[in-house]
């Protein structure tokens, strides 16, 4: 009995970690966290390089959750603009789903220093939910 209990204890953390990995956990390890404007979705993202440099291509990893669970359906579009300048990015970013609720984004380029708005459009069941974040690159 005692011996079995010990074994159980030893395995518990490992089981917890694998469970967390399988279910996608309720929180993200990515640097930035925000909510969609209607508060229905949580978006987490990080960039490489970080922080985002001026006029250098960067990639992003993005996770989207609803009620703490990674999205099993739906699409994501990532875009950005400089509202004060009246222009967006010069490229359409390349977005690839890498797993449940996870995406990898390539060809992001903030070609000018200044204030950018980063947009995450989550499309589920025909409805688009937007999350957005202001980023200053300098």
């Amino acid at each position: 009995m005692i011996r079995e209990q010990n074994t159980m204890n030893m395995h518990l953390p490992a089981i917890a970690i694998s469970l967390a990995l399988v279910l996608g956990g309720c929180s993200s390890t990515l640097d930035h966290q925000l909510q969609s404007n209607d508060r229905a979705y949580e978006v987490s993202w990080s960039s490489d390089p970080a922080p985002i440099p001026v006029n250098e291509f960067f990639t992003m990893d993005v996770e989207v959750r609803r009620d703490g669970t990674l999205l099993a359906s739906g699409d994501l579009v990532v875009d950005a603009a400089m509202p004060h300048h009246n222009h967006g990015m010069n490229h359409i970013p390349h977005i690839e789903r890498t797993g449940t609720g996870r995406w990898h984004v390539q060809d992001m380029l903030f070609h000018m220093p200044g204030d950018w708005e980063l947009y995450f459009d989550i499309k589920q069941d025909g409805v688009v939910h937007r999350a957005q974040e202001s980023i200053e690159v300098d």
Partner: peptide
């Protein structure tokens, strides 16, 4: 490559 992909994706 990346160069080709970026040419194809200009806005």
């Amino acid at each position: 490559g990346a160069r080709a992909r970026r040419t194809a994706s200009i806005v």
